[in-house]
Amino acid sequence: MDGDDQYLVARAVSAQDTAAFGELIRRHQSQIRNFLRKLTGDISFADDLAQDCFLHAWNKLQTFTGRGSFVGWLLKIAYTTFLQSKRKSKRYSEVLDSAGHAAVIEGRSYTNPKDEVHDLGKMLAVLTEEERAIMVMSYACGLSHREIGEATGQPVGTIKSMIYRGKEKIRTNFDIEDHKHG
């Protein structure tokens, strides 16, 4: 099925075309699932959240105005779904606790071996949840600061300072300087 995202959204909304929405899912599932996997650190939990995210997206599809990118709008829903599930789910706090412990035990006490920087999970664990979401949106999903602001409901200035803080934490805890040139 051809057509850009907005055309597919229009078809899905006007004719309740589930095939058009299926095409939208196929196009963006990888990015949404990657985002949630990095955010939660748990593959199956992230995939459950991604399913909920797309179901929410279907139910609120008529609210997509087409001003920003469709994937930005989906990431906003994914982030909201993640925050809502976190409030409800005990499982998430268990996952987060174990990730946090791993970071404390392994990450911060490391003497910065060169290949450590590639362990993204440990790197993300030193960030707060909000910083993690923003860093992932910025560096993994390629969203602009304005798009991240729309997705998280924060002003652009706050996004910039959170990215700065996140980078600072990563710099402090991991040896990323060495990797700049090699």
Binding site: I25, Q29, Q51, M123, M135, K167, K180
Partner: peptide, 27 residues
């Protein structure tokens, strides 16, 4: 540094493997 972080954060695309079909069926 930004480019380095982008390369660290970059992930392999996840294969659909029936994921979208499952959601469409649920819808």
């Amino acid at each position: 540094e930004d480019r380095l972080l982008e390369s660290i954060f970059a992930a392999e695309p996840i294969a659909d493997d029936g994921f979208s079909n499952r959601i469409v069926r649920r819808i």
